[in-house]
Design a protein around this nucleic acid. Structure first.
Lengths: 203, 203
DNA sequence: CTGATATGACCTTTGAGTAAGTTACCACGA
DNA sequence: TCGTGGTAACTTACTCAAAGGTCATATCAG
């Protein structure tokens, strides 16, 4: 029986995996885990579903691979910034600048780690927790510094402030996704203006 | 043939609808639209799936009913606060206070209008848009005021700042959901402390 | 010819939605 | 007071479609 589409297309496994991860990350990041189907990813990649299963084992395996690639990127970047000497709001701004630069082509990567529709148990949850905690820990560290400058060391206050900070980053990434023409630099300048407006117009 | 569980249980339709809406709102609000199954709602309510379909027509109809009930509540509250004379950060805080008071028993209601897994077309999208735009418009109005105090009237800046503001509210609601013992008043005091820390510790 | 790349056609599970029937309540006439 | 019929409340047992996952097989490069 003739199958006109079967047989290798000459794409090495690593290249194909990279391509699949690119597409999957975008889909997962923009639509969420639950709303993304493996068949849709296969379609976009111009390949068939079984190839994805062959390479990644399962939908969860694929998501995990996306997490590993994106999480290392994100966490490494933030950790490097944390090693700098900026403190308080300064450090927040430096972090933002780094994130914008890093995520310029793909702001949706950020969403991978804050997707409510991803499984909350099993190995995905572990992987998410791993990176989310790394990010969270650094955020917490920065916030703790900021708060201690203001003489506040209440753990719940710090926890809430950290949540707010991550929420701010999250909303900026979402806004960016809706305004894809903005460059990382423009985003950063915008953030500085917003900060000025906040501190200048009041108090 | 005997069906031990069939037949009315003597619960009037309105009562049952209210009960279903309570449970559905909580499920949709905490798990998201896609991850919530009608069967699970029926289970929690101690009734069968068809009764829900009988009353609400479809999963989307049920979600829409949740939106209508919750959206009216939220938008009315924010609109009322907007009629007050607070301006800038003050207005933001007044809004927060109102939201905390209103959502004390059910912070997850807020999530209904910002659920990425809800259908983005059809009547649900319309209903979401209706309320989300009402909320958004008021947020935009407040932010525009705040920004103009600082001499900034760039539309994109205002748009981004509005997104950030809504993101802050969002993250506070999420944090609240993870700390259900906090009262509305405690939440508000906490927010004031965070604000103080932000303005006191820097600049 | 062997192994890597690749696929069509299937199986299976899950969850939305429905058809058809069962039971309890209640108004009303005798 | 006692049927009795109509309606509202409610369920079991299904259908159907979508999506995760698998199997056997086909093609091509070296």
């Amino acid at each position: 029986m003739v199958r006109p589409n079967a047989g290798t297309k000459g794409v090495p496994r690593l290249d194909r995996e990279t391509q699949i991860l690119d597409i999957a990350s975008e889909q997962f990041g923009t639509q969420g885990f639950a709303a993304t189907s493996v068949a849709a990813i296969a379609d976009k990649a111009g390949i068939s579903k079984p190839l994805i299963y062959n390479y990644f084992g399962s939908k969860e395996g694929l998501y995990e691979a996306c997490l590993d690639r994106g999480g290392a990127l994100l966490a490494d970047e933030i950790e490097q910034i944390a090693r700098g000497d900026a403190v308080g709001i300064e450090r927040g701004m430096a972090t933002l600048a780094g994130m914008f630069a890093l995520l310029e082509p793909q702001p949706y990567l950020w969403r991978l780690f804050f997707d409510a529709t991803a499984p909350s148990t099993g190995s995905i949850a572990d992987a998410v927790a791993l990176y989310a905690e790394r990010i969270d820990k650094l955020a917490d560290e920065g916030v703790t510094e900021l708060m201690s400058l203001a003489g506040n060391d209440d753990p719940l206050d710090i926890s809430a402030m950290t949540a707010v900070w991550l929420g701010i980053v999250d909303s900026l990434m979402n806004w960016w996704m809706e305004h894809p023409d903005e460059s990382a630099e423009q985003m950063m300048e915008r953030c500085l203006r917003l900060l000025t407006a906040l501190f200048g117009g009041n108090e």
